[in-house]
């Protein structure tokens, strides 16, 4: 059990963040908190990929003279992928904030139950 936990600590951390994010997005009534939870969820996915790239004792994937062993460098591909995923995350957050500004201007609140109540009228 302990070995399972410590050996995969990075992944457990990502899983915990994932669950926190999901809870926040589905369980919290405030729209800004939903958005923050969405960012936590995206960070969980990013950390998961970065953890995949990790190798014990390896260095950054920039060639060191005379060092040609693949295991001496971490895998650069997940980092490259996550750069794209971060950009996607930033754009999603931007669009969401724009929507929230419009919602706030119209309703004067960002609490979902209040908004739904006023839309029913």
């Amino acid at each position: 059990m302990w070995e399972n936990l410590s050996g995969y600590l990075n992944y457990w951390l990502a899983a915990v963040l994932l669950l926190i994010g999901l809870y926040g997005m589905l369980g919290r009534p405030n729209l800004v908190k939903k958005l923050m939870a969405m960012n936590i969820l995206q960070v969980a996915a990013i950390l998961f990929f970065i953890a995949l790239a990790e190798k014990t004792g390896a260095t950054a994937p920039i060639e060191v003279k005379g060092l040609h062993d693949v295991s001496a460098y971490v895998n650069p591909l997940p980092h490259a992928l996550m750069l794209t995923a971060i950009v996607v995350g930033v754009s999603t957050t931007g669009v969401a904030l724009a929507l929230l500004i419009r919602i706030h201007r119209h309703f004067g609140t960002l609490e979902e139950p209040e908004i739904l109540e006023r839309m029913r009228l």
Binding site: M38, Q42, A96, I103
Partner: peptide, 15 residues
């Protein structure tokens, strides 16, 4: 405005 609220919920689920 109704579309905007619906879209925000879609954005959360879609993400």
């Amino acid at each position: 405005i109704r579309g905007t609220v619906a879209t925000f919920r879609y954005l959360i689920v879609g993400t």
